[in-house]
Every structure is written in C-alpha cells, then in structure tokens.
Simulated assay, not measured.
Amino acid sequence: MKTREIEGELTIYTAATEKENLISFLQSDDELELNLSKVTEMDTAGLQVLILLKNEARRHQKTLHYVMHSKPVLEILEMANMTASFGDQVILT
C-alpha cells in the first residue's frame, strides 16, 4: 500500500495542482491511502477533488482510503452530508 499526505490548503486556489498530483499518485499502486491530517483549510473545490479521486480509483479498480481526516476536512464533509459517502472510517476526536 502506498501512502501520501496532503499538507496545507485544499481549496479553489490549490485544487488544480493537487488534482494533477493526486491523479499521478493514483497511478502509482493498486492500493492507496491518502492522509488528510495536515489539511489546514478545505472548501468545496477540495471536496470535488476528493470525489473525483475516489471515482477514478473505482473506475480503474483501485482501492483508495482517506485516513486521519483533519477538522477542516470533517467540517466540509459534514456540511455536504458526505461523512460516510466515501466508505472510509472517520474517527472523531
């Protein structure tokens, strides 16, 4: 399993760059884990990137887990009523 971490913002200002980086990451293995613990800010553009990545993983028959959700990530997931949508375990602290 290959792991990657996102640090900093996942917002409209960084979404395009992160999307390209994450698509490359998606091609690196069949089982992947994306650590979201260091995401300091996230908006709906960041959420769209996470949705796209999950969909691409399914389309290519890869396993992708989102882990260690930071507070900003959890806030957007809750606001969009998508906390359980990705199928990943979310631990609230």
Rank of each mutant, 00 (worst) to 15 (best):
I23Y: 14
I23A: 14
I23E: 15
S24Q: 09
F25E: 06
F25L: 04
L26M: 14
L26C: 14
L26N: 13
Q27Y: 11
Q27L: 14
Q27S: 15
S28F: 11
S28N: 12
D29W: 08
D29V: 13
D29P: 00
D29R: 05
D30S: 10
D30Y: 12
E31P: 05
E31V: 12
E31A: 12
E31Q: 10
L32R: 12
L32M: 13
E33Q: 15
E33W: 13
L36V: 10
S37H: 09
S37L: 05
S37G: 08
S37P: 00
K38P: 03
K38I: 06
V39T: 09
T40M: 09
T40H: 04
E41C: 09
E41D: 10
E41K: 15
E41N: 06
E41W: 11
E41A: 15
M42V: 09
A45P: 07
A45V: 02
A45Y: 05
G46K: 14
G46R: 10
G46V: 14
G46W: 12
G46M: 15
Q48A: 06
Q48L: 03
V49H: 05
V49R: 08
V49A: 04
V49C: 04
V49N: 08
V49M: 03
L50D: 05
I51E: 01
I51S: 02
I51M: 05
I51Q: 01
L52D: 02
L52E: 03
L52I: 12
L52S: 06
L53Y: 09
L53F: 11
K54T: 00
K54A: 05
K54D: 01
N55P: 07
N55K: 13
E56R: 14
E56M: 14
E56Q: 13
A57H: 06
R58V: 01
H60Q: 06
H60Y: 06
H60M: 02
H60D: 03
K62F: 00
K62V: 00
T63H: 12
T63K: 11
L64D: 02
L64E: 01
L64W: 03
H65D: 08
H65Q: 13
H65F: 11
Y66Q: 02
V67L: 05
V67C: 04
V67K: 00
M68A: 12
M68I: 02
M68T: 11
M68W: 07
H69M: 05
K71H: 03
K71G: 01
K71F: 00
P72W: 08
V73F: 10
V73D: 02
V73C: 07
L74G: 12
L74P: 03
L74M: 12
L74I: 15
E75H: 07
E75Q: 06
E75F: 10
I76H: 12
I76M: 13
L77D: 06
E78N: 00
E78F: 01
E78Y: 00
E78W: 00
E78P: 00
E78L: 01
M79H: 03
M79C: 03
M79Q: 04
M79S: 07
N81Y: 04
M82G: 02
T83M: 12
A84D: 13
A84H: 11
